[in-house]
């Protein structure tokens, strides 16, 4: 099976994020980056499918130069090769723009299956994967925990609300967005990193792909979430105070 996994580099989960001087983006100096979590699960699913059925796993990622590190990490975990879409202006593209970019890189590969994470940990739009399917004109399913190859296509397990699951069948090629937690992730190894050095990373640009478009997003500003703690004193006799507390818990906080 020929599988493509679209991955994204995001700030490390433990990173201490600050706003940059212009107030229009976060300060990127000193920030540590990592592979987006649900993309890591998408990669794991792809690697397991390859281990079972053979084939090839290619990762695709777009972004500035630092993305190279995340690509190497994916190669170290077992991907066979990578396509790196070099672009410094991702911030000026919306989800549609990014999906077009990825689609252009993926199309000539003619994959049987395209996997990507459900959503990114930084922007959290949750759209890129689904739009990618539309742009490529392929069937898709989202929130996937598990993929099984069948004679005719795929059987996938979707997560629904409240512990319900849905199993659906799909023809290939298809696009699936993967939910975190379906598999056990493998850890990166020294041998993997060393072997990754000799794996192919093909670099392309938006103009190579013919999707050089003018910016559509203009960032007005970013702010930190406001932390707010407020204390209310409930006066009166203990009995009155207790009654007032119950009132609040019932109707304001709605925990009772």
């Amino acid at each position: 099976m020929k599988i493509i996994v679209a991955i994204k580099q995001v700030p490390e989960r433990d990173a201490q994020v600050r706003i940059n001087a212009a107030g229009k983006w976060i300060e990127e100096v000193d920030l540590q980056y990592a592979l987006n979590e649900s993309d890591a699960y998408a990669l794991e699913e792809a690697l397991q499918l390859k281990e079972k059925h053979g084939g090839e796993v290619t990762v695709v990622s777009a972004g500035p130069e630092r993305v190279g590190q995340t690509i190497r990490e994916a190669l170290a975990k077992g991907a066979d090769r990578a396509i790196y879409v070099a672009s410094n202006d991702l911030g000026s593209r919306d989800a549609l723009g990014v999906a077009r970019l990825l689609a252009a890189a993926i199309q000539p590969e003619n994959p049987d299956l395209i996997l990507t994470g459900l959503q990114s940990e930084d922007l959290g739009l949750g759209q890129t994967g689904v739009i990618l399917a539309e742009v490529l004109g392929l069937p898709h399913a989202s929130l996937i925990l598990h993929v099984e190859k069948t004679e005719t296509g795929l059987t996938v397990k979707r997560e629904l609300e409240e512990g319900w699951f849905q199993t659906i069948e799909l023809p290939t090629p298809a696009v699936l967005t993967i939910q975190s937690g379906g598999n056990k992730l493998r850890y990166a190894t020294l041998m993997g990193i060393k072997r990754a050095k000799i794996k192919e990373v093909r670099q392309v640009t938006a103009s190579d792909l013919g999707v050089d478009v003018p910016p559509v997003v203009l960032m007005e500003g970013v702010t930190m979430p406001h932390k707010q703690k407020s204390t209310q004193m409930l006066g009166g006799s203990p009995k009155e105070a207790a009654a007032a507390l119950v009132e609040k818990l019932k109707f304001e906080v709605r925990v009772l």
Partner: peptide, 17 residues
């Protein structure tokens, strides 16, 4: 990568990320 252990894997991933 020959060692597979649920807890060990978790520890490694916690420190990778």
């Amino acid at each position: 990568g020959a060692w597979e252990d649920e807890h060990g894997g978790k520890l490694f991933l916690a420190l990778e990320r």
